[in-house]
Structure formats: structure tokens, C-alpha cells
């Protein structure tokens, strides 16, 4: 019993560390890829590890009071929490204790804390950045939520673990309406990752680096960790929903195989997001909003109705 618990805690800790590492690695690789597309050399793939270490070891940290500090606490703890509630490579972790709605809402904890911190900094630019981030959240959530509901209705479960399990025989992506839905969700993922064309909340050219303008030292370091894990979390969420969490094998060694396939899948979608990022110019915030609430929502609704029709017949 106790041993089980210890093992569980160990696994969870491991996943947390692995998630951080993978995220930072992806960020590094991402920078390299973008550099190559831009025909630059780019930094080494481990550059982000160095950045984080540097920031965390900075000696003078400027704080704007106790509410400002909440940003740090909320962003790291919240994103870790989210990570642990997602099935990774078919391993359910804590996701049996929650479901997709929980994850949707858990994703908001760090951003809300982050927003609190930015607000507390008193910098108007931060305020504007937070506003844009929140509007962006509202924008991409609508199509994303509709596709999520389509999945839930189709598999008759709201638990992510349940959805993943249901896809053991066939990934959702291979069912026609979900192909459409996954395309929609991928654009939503683009917004979640705040990559171009949806990077206006943090675009450095626009509003002096946006919400994190006042963050420095350990605060910025923690935000980088948050960003890294969130990349993992968001792509995993997507993969869990449409690709059965990357589960391809059952039986012996299935764990390691599935883990690798998961890793490959999230890397693919991260890369895809990066490629889109490099290829497109930036949307203004209202353009982004319109894009999501108009075209994306219509497509998502079509897929939802399609699914509903499939379910009731």
C-alpha cells in the first residue's frame, strides 16, 4: 500500500521532471528549426536549459509584492498539476480522478495566476498583454470545446482516460468527422501554444514583450519552465484526444513503445505548429477572435452535428 503510493509518487515525479525536460528540449529544437527555416544557424538545442539555469540563479530579483509572487507559484504548480492529470503514452497517471473538463479548467490556473502577477506589476503593457491572452483563450476555446464535446458524445465519456481507452482499436482521427474536428483542434492548439499567427499576446514587437514585461530572474525562469511544460501538456492533450494518446501497442513493452510513439506525435504537432508559425504573419487580436469564432466554429459545429447524427442513428 505504502509502497504503491511511493511508487506512484515516484512515477509522478518522474513524469513531472520528464515533462519539464522534454518541454525545454522541444523549445530548443524548435528554435533551431525556426532558425533553419529563416536560413539562420540558431542556438544549440540545449540553449533553453542554459537559459533557465541562468535565470534561476540570478542574484537580484525584483518583486512587486505578494500578489506578484503568486504568478510564480501558480504558473509552476498549476501546469505541473495539469500535466499529471493527462494520460501520457497511455499511462493514466491521475487522469482517472478527473476528466477533460477538469483539465480545461486546470489549464486556466497558471494563466490566471500569471495574469494576477502581471496585473500586480502595475505595468500597463502587462495589463494589455494579459487582456490579449485572455481574449485569445476565449477565442480558441470555443472551437476546441466543440470538438471536445463531439468526442465526448461519440465515446460517451468525458474522461480523457476513457477517450484514450476507447481509441485503442481505432484512433479518432480515422473517423471522418473527427478528421475535420482534429483540423479545427490543431488550429486551436496553435492558439494555445501562442505561435504565429496567434502570438499577439506575447509578441515582443507589439507591446514590449507583453505580460511578462516585469518578470525577471527567477520569475522569468519559472515562466520559462511553465512555457516548456505547457508545450508538452497542450500537445499531449491534442494527441490524447485524436490519436488515442499515441497508443499503438498492447501487451509486453507496450509502455515504452507507446511512450515513444507519444513523444513522436507530440513532437510532430509541435513542429507543425512551429512551421505554421514561421509561414504566417501575425493576426491582430480581433482578427484572431473572428477567425476562431467564425470559420473554426462553423467547421467544429459541422463536425459536432455530424457526430451527433452518427450517434443517434
Amino acid at each position: 500500500m505504502v509502497i504503491d503510493l511511493i511508487i506512484k509518487i515516484a512515477i509522478l515525479t518522474g513524469y513531472a521532471i520528464a515533462g519539464t525536460a522534454i518541454g525545454l528540449l522541444f523549445m530548443g529544437i524548435g528554435r533551431k528549426i525556426v532558425a533553419r527555416v529563416h536560413n539562420r544557424v540558431g542556438p544549440p538545442f540545449y540553449q533553453n536549459f542554459i537559459d533557465v539555469a541562468k535565470l534561476l540563479s540570478k542574484k537580484t530579483n525584483i518583486s512587486h509584492g505578494w500578489i506578484f509572487d503568486l504568478a510564480l507559484l501558480f504558473s509552476i504548480s498549476g501546469i505541473l498539476l495539469t500535466l499529471l492529470f493527462l494520460p501520457i503514452g497511455g499511462v493514466k497517471l491521475l487522469s482517472m480522478d478527473g476528466d477533460a473538463f477538469l483539465v480545461l479548467y486546470l489549464l486556466a490556473i497558471p494563466s490566471l495566476g500569471f495574469a494576477l502577477g502581471a496585473g500586480a506589476s502595475g505595468n500597463p503593457n502587462a495589463g494589455i498583454g494579459v487582456m490579449r491572452a485572455l481574449v485569445m483563450l476565449l477565442s480558441y476555446e470555443l472551437p476546441f470545446v466543440i470538438t471536445l464535446i463531439a468526442l465526448m458524445i461519440y465515446y460517451d465519456t468525458t474522461s480523457i482516460a476513457g477517450i484514450v481507452e476507447s481509441q485503442h482499436s481505432q484512433w479518432a482521427i480515422f473517423i471522418p468527422p473527427f478528421l475535420l474536428a482534429s483540423a479545427v483542434a490543431d488550429m486551436a492548439l496553435q492558439g494555445m501554444l501562442m505561435e504565429q499567427p496567434f502570438d499577439i499576446p506575447i509578441a515582443p514587437h507589439e507591446i514590449a514583450s507583453g505580460p511578462m514585461v516585469e518578470f525577471g530572474g527567477k520569475y522569468l525562469g519559472s515562466l520559462m519552465i511553465y512555457k516548456a511544460i505547457s508545450i508538452v501538456v497542450e500537445t499531449t492533450f491534442f494527441v490524447d484526444l485524436f490519436f488515442g494518446g499515441g497508443v499503438i501497442a498492447h501487451g509486453k513493452f507496450s509502455g515504452i513503445v507507446n511512450f515513444i510513439s507519444w513523444l513522436v506525435l507530440i513532437f510532430i504537432f509541435f513542429t507543425l505548429a512551429l512551421l505554421i508559425n514561421t509561414a504566417f504573419p501575425r493576426f491582430r487580436i480581433e482578427q484572431a477572435f473572428k477567425f476562431y469564432w467564425k470559420y473554426e466554429t462553423i467547421l467544429a459545429t459541422i463536425s459536432l452535428i455530424w457526430v451527433y447524427w452518427m450517434v443517434i442513428t
Binding site: I9, L12, A16, L56, S57, K58, K59, T60, N61, I62, S63, H64, G65, D69, L72, L73, F74, S75, I76, S77, G78, L80, L81, L84, G217, K218, G221, S222, I225
Partner: peptide
Amino acid sequence: AALIPAFLIYKSKPHRIV
């Protein structure tokens, strides 16, 4: 549990309230 690492980072370096 997740607050623990966050708190560790928070406490790791001193900060100055401006």
C-alpha cells in the same frame, strides 16, 4: 505537491520588493 517545487524556486533566491 506541485506547489513544493514552485515554492522551492520562489525561496531559492531572495527578492527585493520595489
